[in-house]
Design a protein around this nucleic acid. Structure first.
Length: 567
RNA sequence: CCCGGAGUAGCUCAACUGGAAGAGCAACGAACUGUCCAUUCGAAGGAUGCCGGUUCGAAUCCGGCCUCCGGGGCCA
């Protein structure tokens, strides 16, 4: 005997007259004394059970798991429920069995006003609701669509280690102590980057993986400690071929979830344009409000703040600001690193007619100006642009995908004063600039590309270095000695020296992608069991302290921590 | 680490300038044979996140802390 003959949401008039077994959760019950109605729910939907006095319906409570046997009956015309797919039928229960009881619930299933911490603490209940069912199923469908696309395109799914060698550069690693090697640690992989390159050198030509990655950095709406990425790598390719595959994967995912896909090819902008117009390398292109430059026009201004600044930039906002509103924005921009934020109308008295004309602010609008280093002005105005667009509700409900190209290969390292890579150390420089002055590499561009959807960075990729000399030059530019390079990345240098094909690839964050696909504001709605911002799991209570003996076995000892209960 | 917001019954929220902590839903008891998030009646439910201070009197004001959310820093 099976637990059920049919799922709850599948019952239709065609089943009338059949004696069927159904099973599911008690969604609601309406107890009329001699007659009890129960909406029985599973993930496919609900069906109404009708129980007579003798069937034990009074004992049922919300979220009990029950099995019912009965005849499917047509409802009387005036008893049809048009809000239910199964609303034309009901089950006249002959026997009912309670398979599992439930204590009173901390919240009602499907209540979308419940605080997220409570939902996460009782995620198994949250998952019974329509929202998580939809999101996790959509996530599955999107990944299935991606896998299908990759398979069709001849990519080979190769598993790479989660436990690997730590890298001091870039994001912090999660460390794994090793009992057999006391005092030594694996790092959880931040991405399969080097392994997939080795797969190319190993002759696999097209690799992909839905890879789990780990980064020990503060959590955000779009960041968890662990996340998955569509990770792919191709040998003997140019940039365009990689982009083409990625667009195919994105479209494949859209089609798999039944949404109309964005038009290909996706538009492109350069890093320089993104930074100057939008102050961000992942600009939200759903709206304008572009950053403009008034440096030339104010170079000889009598207004010293403008005249003496290395750069004067501004955005024009379709609103006038009160003094209080302006002051609030000033406080915000100072927080972001600006010295101030000038409202053009307030400093207009110091400016000439010509200067004011150069700004060209229409009536009813305001120009908000930052006079500072170019980098600061771009950064601050970029953040302000986003902030005001959200606040003033200027972002249309559309989807914009685009690529960003021509990133610098290196950037200044504020912490150590030297140079470091902008994305990772394995991105190839653009053709023709394979040689540079390691002490001043700021002008070298990399064959790097980012994919952006509505201002979220979905992922990035590059054509990699396949020439061992170029790779050594990159390490050197980062201030690594030959010995250091050899000890950290000797295996890569060896591999590159033994017949490395030209290759390149990409990595796209699955949770970010699905969150946008599902219209969710953060990736916790896409992750079955996410962590909260403090880096803890409210469901299991992890992480937990470990007994000293366990730590000792792994060759480590915990530093004493202040006990918050005593403080 | 920094900035901002929030924390009142199991859940979601009220409580004006400091003046007796309240509602809906859930849970509990009861009535009811056609409801559909049934209805009606009844009873119950609270150290107002924690610690301290001001006050005749604090959910409300002040100080410190905790937790969650958003963001900055950080994050190929």
């Amino acid at each position: 005997m099976s637990w059920r003959d049919i799922q709850c949401g599948a019952l239709r008039p065609e089943h009338v007259g059949q004696r069927l077994t159904v099973a599911g959760w008690v969604d609601t019950r309406r107890d009329h004394g001699g007659l009890v109605f129960v909406d029985l729910r599973d993930h496919t939907g609900k069906v109404q059970l009708v129980l007579k006095e003798s069937e034990g319906g009074h004992e049922l409570r919300n979220e009990f798991v029950v099995q019912a046997v009965g005849e499917v009956a047509a409802r009387a015309p005036d008893a049809v429920n048009p809000n239910l797919a199964t609303g034309e039928v009901e089950i006249q229960v002959e026997s009912l069995q309670i398979l599992s009881r439930s204590t009173p619930l901390p919240f009602q299933i499907g209540d979308d006003t419940v605080e997220e911490t409570t939902r996460l603490r009782y995620r198994w209940l949250d998952m019974r609701g329509e929202r998580m069912q939809r999101n996790l199923r959509m996530s599955h469908a999107a990944v299935a669509g991606i896998r299908r696309t990759m398979d069709d395109l001849g990519f080979v799914d190769i598993w790479t280690p989660a436990m690997t060698r730590g890298t001091p550069e870039g994001a912090r690693d999660f460390l794994v102590p090793v009992r057999l090697q006391p005092g030594r640690f694996f790092a959880l992989a931040q991405s399969p980057q080097l392994f997939k390159q080795l797969c190319m050198i190993g002759g696999f030509d097209r690799y992909y993986q839905i890879a789990t990655c780990f980064r020990d950095e503060d959590l955000r709406a779009d960041r968890q400690f662990e996340f998955r990425q569509l990770d792919l790598e191709m040998a003997f390719v140019e940039r365009e071929e990689v982009l083409d595959v990625m667009e195919a994967a994105v479209v494949g995912a859209f089609e798999a979830v039944g949404k109309s896909a964005p038009a290909r090819p996706f538009p492109r902008i350069s890093y320089d344009e993104a930074m100057s117009k939008y102050g961000s390398d992942k600009p939200d292109l759903r709206f304008g409000m572009e950053i403009e430059d008034a440096t030339a026009a104010t170079r000889g201004s009598e207004f010293g703040v403008f005249a003496n600044a290395p750069c004067v930039r501004y955005i024009v906002v379709p609103k006038t600001f009160s003094r209080a509103e302006h002051e609030r924005l000033v406080a915000l921009t100072k927080e972001w690193g600006a010295k101030g934020l000038a409202l053009l109308s307030q400093v207009a008295k110091f400016l000439s007619e010509q200067e004011l004309e150069a700004f060209g602010v229409p009536d009813g609008s305001s120009a908000l100006c930052v006079a500072d280093e170019e980098e600061v002005a771009a950064h601050v105005l970029g953040l302000l642009r986003l902030h005001l667009a959200r606040e003033l509700d200027l972002i249309p409900d559309i989807d914009v995908f685009h690529w960003v190209f021509d990133f610098p290969l290196f950037e200044k390292d504020d912490e150590y004063g030297g140079w470091t890579f902008m994305h990772h150390a394995f991105t190839a420089p653009v053709k023709g600039s394979e040689v540079w002055d390691p002490s001043n590499p700021g002008d070298v561009r990399g064959q790097h590309y980012d994919l952006v959807w509505n201002g979220w960075e979905l992922g990035s990729g590059s054509i990699r270095i396949h020439d061992v000399d170029v790779q050594e030059r990159v390490f050197k530019t980062m201030g690594m000695t030959d010995d250091e390079a050899k000890s950290k990345f000797g295996f890569l240098l060896d591999a590159l020296a033994m017949g490395a094909p030209p290759h390149g690839g990409f990595a796209m964050g699955i949770e970010r992608f699905v969150a946008l696909l599902a219209g969710e504001p953060d990736i916790r709605q896409i992750v079955a069991f996410p962590k909260v911002s403090s880096g803890t799991d409210p469901l299991t209570g992890a992480p937990t302290p470990m007994p000293d003996g366990v730590l000792a076995e792994s060759g480590i000892r915990a530093l004493p921590q202040e006990d918050p209960a005593k403080a």
